[in-house]
């Protein structure tokens, strides 16, 4: 390995690129929720504000990971194959035409978790390694 290649690798890992490649988002709800499973279309409808109703009939409250989180970029890439600029442009259209609001945005991972455990209507995404018994996985993306 040349010095230059090494430098690039160090830079990339400092920029968090390594972490984003390894992020594996799974869609989760509160373990107490009656929702057992959701289809990808249902999750798209909830997170893109098209139709926010859970199969149980309750309103769904989607929770986004913080801005800049590699998990967030990976989630939208897996969900709709869009980058975050496109998601941002999508929400600009809806916000400035006075329609649906975007998902609630947590300030950090701990907030994501407390928002999820705090309400049976909440729906979010976590890295698979962060899922514990407080949460139920309702959608996994194909690798």
């Amino acid at each position: 390995m040349t010095q230059r290649t090494l430098l690039i690798l160090i830079l990339l890992s400092l920029l968090g690129l390594g972490a984003s490649v390894n992020a594996e988002p799974v869609v989760v709800v509160n373990a107490a929720s009656a929702v057992k499973q959701l289809s990808q279309d249902e999750v798209i409808n909830i997170f893109l504000g098209r139709y926010r109703r859970l199969p149980t009939g309750e309103s769904a409250i989607p929770i986004d990971q913080p801005e800049g989180s590699p998990l967030r970029a990976e989630f939208y890439r897996k969900l709709v194959n869009k980058d975050l600029n496109e998601i941002n442009a999508y929400w600009s259209r809806l916000i400035f035409s006075g329609r649906t609001s975007p998902p609630l945005q947590a300030a950090n991972l701990a907030n994501v978790m407390s928002l999820l455990t705090g309400s049976a209507s909440s729906i979010g995404y976590l890295d698979r390694s962060q899922v514990d018994k407080r949460f139920r996985i309702v959608l996994e993306f194909p690798p």
Partner: peptide, 15 residues
């Protein structure tokens, strides 16, 4: 992947 990391403050304010 670069863009979100290069402009965290702008992303944050918009967030």
């Amino acid at each position: 992947k670069f863009r979100p990391i290069l402009f965290p403050s702008l992303r944050k304010s918009l967030a």
